[in-house]
């Protein structure tokens, strides 16, 4: 446990050790605002809630979370520090968890910094703050799922650009899972239950409830299982493919 804490702390500090953190936070906060106000027509709806704000989170994460996850392992590989890290008394699993937690904490900070939205809607009307809190939790969970995918993909390569692009594509598939675009590929040659299983893996479907403020235990289980699965693969990859 102490190891996980030490690595997570170092990892989180390293985000702030470079301008990446500040650029990311500024862009994240700005974009959430842009999406909510301009594309989501926050004012025109005349309703005191943050639905237009949360609705666009999957699309934002699609672009921004891989930017956070890409360096987690790829950078260790390219600089050779993975050799240092894995010869310390640390298991691959602990390192995977620690890095994931650091990235997740960073995304949490980004989410917290969107608090002016919450204040704004409270100033303008009387929203249901319970719904908003639930949506924040849901959004944070979804960010974790994106991050787990990105971290796992980052562990395959030493090239951060590849890690970014591939993670974005895989995340995109997970977001679009419920749509005909992805399902059409499988329909016809896969049995129907597989197709419906694939469509049930959609981030979008599971986030719809969340952005309405409904936290269903199934959605939580869904995101937690996604995180566990990708972190498991991540651990296997780090354990097997330590060198090069």
């Amino acid at each position: 446990m102490a190891n996980i804490w030490a690595i997570a702390k170092r990892e989180l500090q390293s985000y702030f050790g470079t301008p990446i953190a500040y650029v990311f936070l500024a862009i994240f906060v700005a974009l959430t605002g842009v999406f909510a106000f301009f594309i989501g027509a926050f004012f025109d709806r005349g309703e005191a809630d943050l639905k237009p704000f949360f609705e666009y989170h999957p699309w934002l994460y699609l672009l921004l979370v891989p930017a956070i996850s890409m360096r987690l392992w790829a950078e260790e590989r390219s600089s050779g520090t993975i050799e240092l890290l894995m010869t310390l008394p640390v298991s691959a699993f602990e390192a995977v968890i620690a890095k994931f937690l650091a990235g997740w904490a960073f995304l949490g900070i980004a989410l917290i910094l969107t608090f002016p939205m919450w204040i704004t809607v409270n100033v303008l009307g009387t929203p249901d703050n319970g719904i908003i809190a639930a949506s924040y939790v849901g959004s944070f969970l979804m960010a974790g799922a994106f991050l787990a995918i990105g971290a796992c993909i980052s562990s395959f390569t030493k090239n951060q650009v590849i890690a970014f692009v591939v993670a974005s594509v895989v995340c995109f598939v997970f977001v679009m899972n419920g749509t005909e675009m992805v399902l059409g590929v499988f329909r016809g040659w896969m049995p129907e239950f597989v197709v419906s299983a694939i469509s049930s893996l959609s981030f979008l479907t599971h986030f719809e409830d969340v952005s309405r403020g409904v936290i269903d235990i199934r959605d939580i289980v869904f995101y937690v299982s996604i995180i566990c699965f990708w972190l498991f693969v991540n651990t296997v990859v780090v354990g097997m493919k330590k060198a090069d």
């Binding site: 190891n3 050790g17 050779g80 520090t81 010869t87 310390l88």
Partner: peptide, 29 residues
């Protein structure tokens, strides 16, 4: 029981030398 200097002496570049050593000490318990 092992101290290891990998080839090329990799270290986390953005950390100060002291912070880096402190990190290693912490992980080593």
């Amino acid at each position: 029981h092992l101290g290891y200097l990998p080839e090329g002496a990799p270290a986390y570049g953005e950390m100060t030398a002291r912070a880096f050593l402190s990190f290693v000490a912490e992980v080593r318990g």
